[in-house]
Design a binder for these strands. Structure first.
Lengths: 341, 341
DNA sequence: CCATTTCTGATGTACGTAAATCAGATTTTT
DNA sequence: AAAAATCTGATTTACGTACATCAGAAATGG
């Protein structure tokens, strides 16, 4: 049987109340007594029964998710996953609330974070916009003792406890190698469609992509990045234009969201030429395009995993427990026609 | 606040004891009363607090993992993950025990399963060997009301509640497409190294691989399968031999374990020719080979995820709860040089 | 050395559920 | 109509922990 607080008390030769004071870091225990108890805890290998503890506390973890009000499939998917978590929340003793902030607006995000300092939730998850004021606001929350995790997009240099998202440099590198290998030894141009170079994940993906292209596939040259602002119509126009003007294009890497316009443009041009295309994010549109051959591979991050992982980590931090690192590593999914979920 | 049993009792106009009888399917409740209580439960949306229930029951889930005594990296890894789960088990109110059975021995496996019928653990996880007697033994356990999940290798036609493993046909198909695309339009022979065609996962991988090869890459022809029994030395010998005899070989698919021998053989031959190689299972050896270019891609199943998923599912079944399907889908990892964990 | 402060023990209640017991109320059987 | 069987209610204890209260012990200050 698992040791309980009673066993510690007996082992340390103190009363239950003292053990409780030590365990919950309450005052009123002499230093030597405290050490005696701590030794006993270690020796008999006591681990607090979190379920019983939470029951006694009547605790519910109140978490806040801050998500950008972006109108693209990925953010919709992320939102849906947060909502699914909200639906499950009563069972898991969590009380999850979402806060929407304008996309790519550091000031608004920082303000939202500062509001939470007074609310003191048990944890905060946010899709970070990479800016100094956001970093500072996050650090203030952390200083206040509130667990903070970033989701999808990280915040380098901040004190956030955890990042639940993929390694975007690795994603870009992987895209480059896939594209390069799929193109065999062919020489030509590669078009890159991004949302905006102001967003950290997009910058990182491009960085990784360009690095591998330069190192390993000198026959392929990257054209100036097309910024489609994650907008289908804009992407359609820009990509159509590029394909018309440059017939040296043999490959496309779409590292942002809003692939609907890209796919439309590709289909229009596909009659006269064969292109190898790698895109990010599995949505209904990209899935269909992968199956009909318009896209050759999709790199994906599973929003559901990211949300669940963020919650697990926040819970663990709130309870002062450790997490299973391997379980919380968000993987880069590579989908071909054959391994779609 | 979440409704409790007291709220149901009040709402249904019955006592706590009656509610308890209904909730735990104990006898002694008239049909009409039972329905009254059940209506109240639905109406106020009561969900049992599993943590409190397990605390009251003093319950610990006793699970049994049946793993084959195979001496290869993958099974060692799987074992390590089970051991890690055992180490965490006190915290999670689980008591996990492992049973080793000889590999590929249906009779021994069936016997081990039947032994468990008398023990009545709260759940059983097994790496299945695909044979009728195993299927029957599993069905007997299920009939006895014991949750059963298969791990890594499934058991078709059985009543097992869940399979925590990858879709091996999809894995084979994915390998074929990767290999085909990496080889560009080249024509030539493809060697396939398997452990044994008696193992279901290997058969399925080959099936998927052959299907896509036939459909999409008519220029590539698959040579007769080399069965290396997952043994490094045997694999080394057979692969060396094949590479010497057939210089039309331009691609290799290793769908089994024991890649050490394969890698050695490839390195010996790599001086005179370039081969494109896809292998299964990420181990120290395959990782090194991927990084140095001997292998071009690795398909992997994460043993840690499989074990944790199996435990989660068993727990949910034991508690009569539902699982989050998306979370329990074991994904096929595709690793290139750039996205190694 | 007494008064005060700080520490420790003993005890009880609570969290939400499980499970047992016993008394009383129904229904069914004889 | 009485006896037996079945159902229902009330109450209690327990699970492991948190937290509060109060009394008494030990240490500290003056």
């Amino acid at each position: 049987m698992r040791p309980t607080v009673h066993d510690i008390a007996a082992a340390a030769g103190v009363s239950l109340a003292t053990v409780d004071r030590v365990l919950n870091q309450r005052p009123g225990v002499r230093h030597v007594t405290r050490e005696k108890v701590e030794t006993a805890i270690r020796e008999i290998g006591y681990v607090r029964d979190v379920a019983a503890a939470n029951l006694a506390k009547g605790r519910t973890y109140s978490f806040v998710f801050i998500v950008p009000a972006s109108d693209n499939s990925f953010m919709h998917g992320l939102n849906a996953e947060v909502m699914a978590a909200v639906a499950r929340s009563p069972v898991e003793r969590t009380d999850i609330r979402t806060v929407e902030v304008p996309a790519f607006d550091p000031t608004a995000l920082a303000a939202a974070l500062d509001t939470l300092r007074t609310e003191r939730p048990a944890g905060v998850a946010l899709v970070a916009t990479d800016a100094p004021e956001v970093r500072d606001a996050v650090d203030r929350l952390v200083q206040d003792g509130i667990p903070v995790v970033t989701v999808v997009s990280d915040l380098t240099g901040s004190q956030r406890h955890h990042y639940a998202g993929v390694d975007n440099i690795a994603a870009g590198r992987t895209a480059a190698r896939l594209l390069g290998r799929f193109l065999g030894g062919a020489k030509g141009d590669v078009a890159v469609l991004a949302g905006s170079m102001l967003v950290r994940d997009h910058r990182e993906r491009l960085e990784g992509f360009a690095a591998v292209m330069a190192e390993e596939f000198p026959g392929l040259s990257i054209l100036p990045v097309i910024e489609g602002r994650d907008d289908p119509d804009m992407a359609h126009m820009l990509v159509s234009d590029a394909l018309s003007k440059r017939d040296g294009i043999i490959g496309v890497y779409s590292l942002g969201a809003g692939n609907r316009g890209l796919i439309r443009a590709l289909k229009e041009k596909s009659v006269d030429r064969a292109l190898t295309v790698i895109a990010h994010e599995l949505t209904d549109h990209t899935r269909t395009a992968l199956l009909d051959g318009t896209i050759d591979a999709i790199l994906n991050q599973d929003a559901g995993h990211e949300v669940r992982s963020a919650i697990r980590v926040l819970k663990a931090k709130a309870d002062g427990l450790s997490v299973i690192d391997a379980q919380e590593r968000i993987r880069l999914d590579i989908f071909l026609k054959d391994n779609l979920p």
